[in-house]
Design a protein around this nucleic acid. Sequence first.
DNA 1: TTGTAGGCGTTATCAA
DNA 2: TTGATAACGCCTACAA
Lengths: 360, 360
Amino acid sequence: MKKKLNLTEVAKHLGVSIATVSNAFNRPDQLSEKLRERIMTESAKLGYHGPNLAARSLRMGASGIIGVMLSDSLSYSFSDPVASQLLQGIAEVLVENQKQMLLLSSDVHTAEQSSAESLPDGLIVYGTIPTKTMEQIQRIGKPIVIVDYQASNFSSVNIDNQSGAYAIAEHAFTNSISKQKLQEDDDSLNTSILGLKLIEIPRVCRLTEDDFNNPLRQLSQLRLNGYLEAASSHNVEITAEKVWNIPINNHHYAEIAAREALMTSDRPSVLLCMSDIIALSAVKVAKSLGLRVPEDVQITGFDDIPEASRSEPGITTICQQSIEKGRVAARMLLDSIKDDAETQHLKLATRLVIRNSCPQ
Amino acid sequence: MKKKLNLTEVAKHLGVSIATVSNAFNRPDQLSEKLRERIMTESAKLGYHGPNLAARSLRMGASGIIGVMLSDSLSYSFSDPVASQLLQGIAEVLVENQKQMLLLSSDVHTAEQSSAESLPDGLIVYGTIPTKTMEQIQRIGKPIVIVDYQASNFSSVNIDNQSGAYAIAEHAFTNSISKQKLQEDDDSLNTSILGLKLIEIPRVCRLTEDDFNNPLRQLSQLRLNGYLEAASSHNVEITAEKVWNIPINNHHYAEIAAREALMTSDRPSVLLCMSDIIALSAVKVAKSLGLRVPEDVQITGFDDIPEASRSEPGITTICQQSIEKGRVAARMLLDSIKDDAETQHLKLATRLVIRNSCPQ
DNA sequence: TTGTAGGCGTTATCAA
DNA sequence: TTGATAACGCCTACAA
């Protein structure tokens, strides 16, 4: 009853050769339909579930499994809408291609030498991962596609963070509300930035001038650059003390930062947020302080997560097509597994989505 | 350069035995610290990444990988907040225990004989899965824990859907707004139900009397029973034509159903929704129709997803602790992998969370 | 269409 | 500590 079943055992029971059973599972054309059927039903009855994946993949050098390595913790990634959408896109393509998905977190990796990275036929890496880990997974010699990060020696899928940030900041500086405000008093627009993972410090705090040139995360740095560039084009002054650092993209930290930003004596009339989660929190805080959005303070987001369109007011944001990004990355990886294609760097388009938190 | 590296090769290069290298990776106590260190750095330099998982797991009969099989498509599951929260809880415990997570969708499974289920050391099954697939994964003889479904031969983690539904319906029927309405006109409360996956038909439609006794999904059926039981306890009449079926838990279908329900001539003053997503959509539709929530129509949800507390008004709902459910299921599975424990059926408590969509 | 044998990379055992 | 060797379960020439 508890006996281990394998091809040999099954073949013995059925009175056929082991090769035939193997063929029944993998190459239906190598034997008669009738025999195949008999083998399938019989082995099912016997309790044989099918070829063991470990053995098969050892033998064939391929597992049909694709690894997805997340820079943030696995658990956090499930709670983050952007990561979830990326995973959604990846999953879509993998399922289409009958691949399974193994989730790896860079945390686990560093903790132990899990060696689990040796199983997948290829890897999608999301976000910024410690150089050491990068080197280690490179060593396995399997195709790798990285997302939201750029490194010359790997294929990658990115969006143009800087131009996206520029576009939305420019919109905020030049829309009708801003124009009117500028007319009313001569002052320039008072603008603050709620930034994500700009510096290493794991808490909500303002930046110092030094931090401006001290990029921690490519992605955040690029968005910051875009904002600042737009600001200087439109004579808006943004000093370091008007830029907040939020260590993790969740409502808890975002609300703390938003409260700080909105309760300073020279309250901003434009609040540029580096994610929709931050923007949603900022709207909530603004409302709780009795401020009207957008009349008193205009708020912009980034990402275009589903909730951004459902909230009230809707969040003006940059759509970065996270689902599509996932699809593209997955396709790219599958292609390079097939053809051993050369490394390429894709940049997806972004799009300004205007809603009521920072209207036309 | 492109040569394949394995233990043998590395051992040869280092001039030590293959067993020693293996020990260096797996049993540090079997050799001198100094030697181990040399082996580790040298093999890293050589480009050896660590023991191959396929081979190791073939040899050891365990892979350190836990499979999670989702009844809905993988891609959908990432977009569903409840599934995401469950995964979040599972991931938390798995990472703690240095296990990796392999995502399987029952779709892929039926499509092919992926045999990927043979790799994991155990399986968490979420939701209702075709009997045939169930039988197949049972055959692999590894520990299984099912979530949100009950079958006597498997360990399971559930919540008490029926009592939860009863509690929230009772609240809706007996709170101050309902009392006042009942006083004003003598009529009983006009109540509709927006149900989830109640029948097989893949579209939004009303139920017929027959459908009441024709359970498709355990979970939805139990919630329906809870609602109906509360209704009959409080002299509220709910006929089949006041119950809608929503085939997939997303905003698209939910809005269609909500619109239908709220635009009937005898508009309900209480709308019981089987998920928060449905409730959120219903609130949106109600607003767009110029109805006040809760004054004109009280709306309840189920699940308590994060967005339910952020929306305006907040959604009155049943908290089902999805994250905790994931944690519990994962722990249960890991335990039964270790101890081969007997099957047990856990039922987590639910809690009524009162917010403004159906206030005190 | 069927049977045989070699080897994929590890780990465990056992003797040195 | 080390070195040899036998599985683990499977796939695929190759020969029949």
